[in-house]
Computed example of a mutant assay.
Amino acid sequence: MEVPSGVATDRVVDFDIFNPPGVETDYFSAWQSLVRPDGPGMVWTTANGGHWIATRGDVVRSLWADSERLSSEVLAVTPGLGEMMKFIPLQQDPPEHGPFRLSVMKGLASRYVVALEPKVAEVTRELIAAIKPAGACEFVEEFAEILPLHIFLTLIDVPLSDRPRLRALGAQLTRPDGSMTVEQLRDAADDYLRPFIEARMANPGEDLFSRIFVAGVDGRPWTMDEARRMCRNLLFGGLDTVVAMIGMITLHLARHPQDQTYLRAHPELLPQAADELMRRYPTVSVSRNAVVDMEIDGVQVRAGDIVYLPSVLHNLDPSAFEAPEEVRYDRALNPTRHTTLGAGAHRCVGAGLARMEVIVFLREWLANMPDIRLDPDKPVRMKGGNVGACTALPLIWN
């Protein structure tokens, strides 16, 4: 795509968000390659049809929360994805999205998250018991891809045996490989969800979807189209982000055995340790499209332009956090300060659930596993996309 008129050459890059240079070995360094000392806060990439990328922490943070000039309808850089998915409430803008988001938040109220904590601990211990005797594991395949999906499928009360099928759909949304069109991806999700939606709308139970349906939308029932779009949103939202989060956190522990020792000795610090590790290893990025012509960081952004907002470039910006690449368990950190789980009106509706899962994982893993380290004979592999992740994390222990 042509570079917009008036954009200086130092603002133009050829940066593919799905495959940043060097992402296979270090997702974070790959993204930080965009940042230059005293460099611009916005750049234009010619990749993927051309779009803006916010590269400075203050710009990322302010635009993430700007729902007046930027719309969430576009969803992603992937052509056609937003038009096909029409997620509720993720692709809605205020004030329309407010009543829908409120209903989803009621379904994910803190009392339900607290009630689920014993199940998270139970599944974590079961997975540990399965891998521990071997002295080694491929953590992503044997643990990270199982725990969060197990919990989410329990939450929506669908068969746990469906996990591999759904995991494949989640990967196609955030890291598409071209094997499915966006229409095929949407239809596959809808075909899977349809019988569950129809059953829960007719006879609500105690699962997450049922609780949301019972809450209604601003005093009225959900329509079938709205219910399908909302369940589609929650399904994809629950399939990838926590998997990536747990993978990155475990990679840190494997690289820093002293942190394993320290956290075992200070279990009271696990909640703030979870917050700090989530801040340090963010992998979620979002797309927004401008609804008006505006100036951002000295460049003219036209109505309709896509602006890409990577949480990694906010969380690892020294102007946003002191020594951001250091993990400091005594860092005074409100979880809403970092953008790992979003910011503003579209902060992740499942943020409380995700945080609880990470805390419980850390508690049970450190209590029941010996010191872990990376297998020196097998490489760590990573992948880019709207949710970056470890795709291979080989661990060993004595």
Rank of each mutant, 00 (worst) to 15 (best):
E2T: 07
E2M: 14
S5L: 07
V7H: 09
D10A: 09
R11P: 00
D14R: 13
F15I: 10
F15W: 15
I17M: 05
Y27W: 07
Y27H: 14
Y27E: 08
S29N: 14
S29Q: 09
A30N: 09
V35H: 05
R36V: 05
G39Y: 01
P40F: 03
M42A: 12
M42H: 05
W44F: 11
T45Q: 11
T45G: 12
H51D: 02
W52S: 10
W52R: 07
A54K: 03
G57E: 00
V59P: 00
R61Y: 10
W64M: 11
A65Q: 04
D66N: 14
S72F: 00
T78F: 08
T78M: 08
P79L: 14
E83C: 04
K86G: 10
F87S: 05
I88E: 04
P89A: 10
L90Y: 01
Q91C: 00
P95T: 04
P95W: 01
H97W: 05
H97F: 10
G98W: 10
L102Q: 06
M105D: 07
L108R: 10
Y112E: 14
V113M: 06
V113N: 12
E117W: 04
A121F: 09
T124H: 10
A136K: 15
C137M: 01
E138S: 11
V140D: 04
F143H: 13
F152P: 07
F152M: 11
L155M: 15
L155P: 14
I156C: 10
V158C: 08
R165Q: 13
R167M: 06
L169A: 15
G170N: 00
A171E: 06
A171L: 14
R175I: 00
P176V: 10
S179I: 01
Y192A: 00
Y192W: 00
F196V: 01
F196I: 09
E198S: 13
A199H: 09
R200Q: 12
M201P: 12
G205A: 02
F209I: 08
I212T: 11
G216W: 12
V217F: 02
V217S: 02
E226A: 03
E226F: 01
R229N: 15
L235Y: 02
G237H: 11
T241W: 06
V243T: 15
A244G: 15
G247R: 15
T250A: 07
A254W: 01
A254I: 03
P257V: 01
D259W: 04
Q260R: 11
T261C: 05
L263N: 00
A265P: 01
L270K: 13
A273P: 11
D275L: 07
V284M: 07
V284W: 15
V286N: 06
V292C: 11
D293P: 15
E295W: 01
D297I: 05
V301L: 09
V301M: 12
R302G: 13
I306Y: 15
V307Y: 12
L313G: 10
L313V: 02
F321K: 02
F321E: 05
E325N: 12
E325V: 15
E326R: 08
V327D: 05
A332S: 08
N334L: 01
P335W: 14
H338L: 14
G342Y: 00
A351F: 11
E357S: 15
E357D: 13
I359E: 08
V360Y: 06
W365L: 12
N368G: 11
M369S: 09
D377M: 06
R381A: 15
M382Y: 03
G385K: 09
A389Q: 12
A389F: 15
C390N: 07
P394I: 11
N398I: 01
